[in-house]
Amino acid sequence: MKRTFLIVLLVFLLSSCDDIIEVENISENVITVLAPTNNSVLTQGDIIFSWNDVQDATQYRLQLATPSFENASQILLDSIVTITNFSKSLELGNYEWRVRAENSEYQTIYTTQNFAVEE
């Protein structure tokens, strides 16, 4: 009896955490952006970035570039947030932003939008 207990205990201890706790694969999910949407024209000031929640995501990576990621003259933001909105004050110009959902094992692809800030 004692030997059986030791064998079960050894098997349990040698099991990885992944065998005990399964992390949901969110990589096929797509984030739906609420604002600012593609080609939006906004007024100067605080811009509120928002998107729909992705089930089983624990955080979101939010990035902002000017004028775009492909031709970035400046990366203005690269942040991890745990809620589905973020506010940032922006000057006049053209911008591109993107967001992806993440958990401890997986991440979605980025959803990317561009917008302009004008007077």
Rank of each mutant, 00 (worst) to 15 (best):
K2H: 13
I7E: 00
V8P: 05
V8C: 07
L9S: 05
L13E: 08
L14E: 00
S15C: 06
S16K: 04
S16I: 03
C17F: 06
D18W: 09
D19P: 02
I20N: 00
I20L: 07
E22T: 07
I26F: 00
I26K: 00
S27F: 05
N29H: 03
N29R: 03
V30I: 07
T32H: 01
V33S: 04
L34Q: 15
A35N: 05
A35G: 10
A35W: 09
P36C: 06
T37I: 12
T37W: 13
V41Q: 12
G45H: 15
I47L: 03
I47N: 00
I48R: 09
F49V: 10
S50Y: 14
W51Q: 07
N52R: 12
D53Q: 02
V54F: 05
V54Q: 00
L64R: 13
L64K: 04
A65P: 09
N71G: 10
S73G: 11
S73K: 13
I75T: 13
L76R: 03
L76I: 04
L77E: 14
T82G: 06
T82F: 12
I83A: 15
I83H: 12
N85F: 02
F86Y: 15
S87H: 06
L90G: 07
L90Y: 07
L92Q: 14
L92H: 15
N94E: 15
E96M: 12
W97M: 08
W97C: 10
R98F: 07
R98Q: 09
V99K: 04
R100L: 02
R100F: 05
E102I: 09
N103M: 03
N103T: 11
N103I: 08
Y106I: 00
Q107H: 15
Q107C: 14
T108Q: 00
T108G: 00
Y110L: 03
T112V: 05
Q113L: 02
A116M: 04
V117P: 06
E118T: 14
E118H: 00
